[in-house]
Each structure stands twice: as C-alpha cells, then as structure tokens.
C-alpha cells in the first residue's frame, strides 16, 4: 500500500522543519535514527507541537495516542502495562511486530516512561507516511484518480482541486491492532 503522492523525502524534510521550530534544534543534528527525547531533547508537550505542525503541513490528523494506549483501550487496562508501570510481554510482542528492529531495545519489564524515548525521526516519519498512504483511490467529489502534491505537501485532486481526506492516525493504529489480533491472537 503505497499510494501517497507525497514522497518520504518531503515528509522527512517537513518533520525536520517542525523539529527545528519546536525544539530550536540545529538541523544538522537531526538524523533519521535520532531519538526525539534522548538526542533532541523533546518532552511530551513538544511531541504534540511537532504533530500539530505536521498536521498543518500535510492536512492530516496524527494519532493522539501511542500504540500502548490503544492496546489498553481495546484489550483492557493492564494488557500492555502492568501494575508497576512496566511493559507486558504481549505489549513487547506487538511493538516488535510494528516497529521491527528499530525498537530492538524493547523488552518485557521495561518502564513505560522509557518507551517514548524509542520514537525516532524515522519512526515518526513512517507514521506520517502511513496516514498519507491512506489516501482514497479516487476523489470523493469528482471520482477521478488524479492526486497531485500541491506545493509538494498538500494532496489535492488534479481534476477538481478537492483536498484529499485521509484516515486519522488513531483509526489507522486501531485498524492495525485489529488486523494483527485476528492473525496472531495475542490477547
């Protein structure tokens, strides 16, 4: 599923811009593998600020909640994070399926407060790409399949100019969790 007319390179570029503006970071210090918290000094409020800038840039809705929260909302409190605030084995299994090697430091028993530090520039960019790839086959208004990237960042119908409506980040995470659960029966 790779339908976005906006390139990953553009996404990384916009993300860097958002990080520079939010954190006063030096652009040369921002690498794909940089941890927003550990390497770039972001805090939870900063994430929301960065997300907001990305939403404005691309006309999308980023996820308001991280995967762990969605797991607990769907499968109950305690399913992802135990009473001591530590990751359960099932949560780690799921995060590894989702993020693969990029989050290789993950292990059961890890403190939940350490998880946000695993978010990197690359993983955030992929989150944006997932949303951009949810662009519908054709324009809801005129029915044509002719998406164009206006100014490189805004997906618009090349025929009638209607902006694309993407799925929001939270819905995509929930849909992914449902699919994985159907296949692997983790919970």
């Amino acid at each position: 599923m790779n339908k976005s007319v906006i390139t990953e390179e553009t996404v990384l570029q916009e993300l860097k811009k958002a990080i520079v503006e939010t954190l006063n970071a030096d652009e040369s210090s921002i690498q794909p593998e940089s941890s927003l918290i550990n390497d770039l000094g972001a805090e939870s409020l900063d994430f929301l600020d960065i997300n907001y800038r990305l939403e404005q840039a691309f006309g999308i809705k980023m996820a308001r909640h991280f995967v762990l929260e969605h797991i607990e909302e769907m499968y109950g409190e305690g399913s992802a994070i135990d009473d001591n605030g530590q990751l359960t084995e099932k949560a780690v299994t799921l995060l590894k399926i989702r993020f693969g090697d990029k989050m290789k430091d993950l292990e059961p028993g890890m403190d939940m407060d350490e998880v946000p530090a695993l978010v990197t520039v690359q993983s955030l960019a992929e989150g944006v790409m997932d949303i951009l790839n949810s662009v519908p086959e054709s324009c809801e208004k005129c029915g044509k399949s002719d998406w164009q990237a206006e100014e490189g960042v805004r997906t618009k119908c090349g025929s009638c100019g209607e902006p694309a409506v993407f799925r929001n980040g939270d819905d995509l995470i929930k849909a992914w969790l449902t699919k994985v659960q159907e296949e692997k029966k983790i919970f």
Binding site: L45, D46, L48, D49, N51, Y52, R64
Partner: peptide
C-alpha cells in the same frame, strides 16, 4: 501557551 497547542487538537 504550549498547552494550548494540545487543547486545540481536541
């Protein structure tokens, strides 16, 4: 403030 950026998302 910074919190407003969050509030406006909701």
């Amino acid at each position: 403030t910074d919190s407003f950026k969050v509030l406006r998302q909701y």
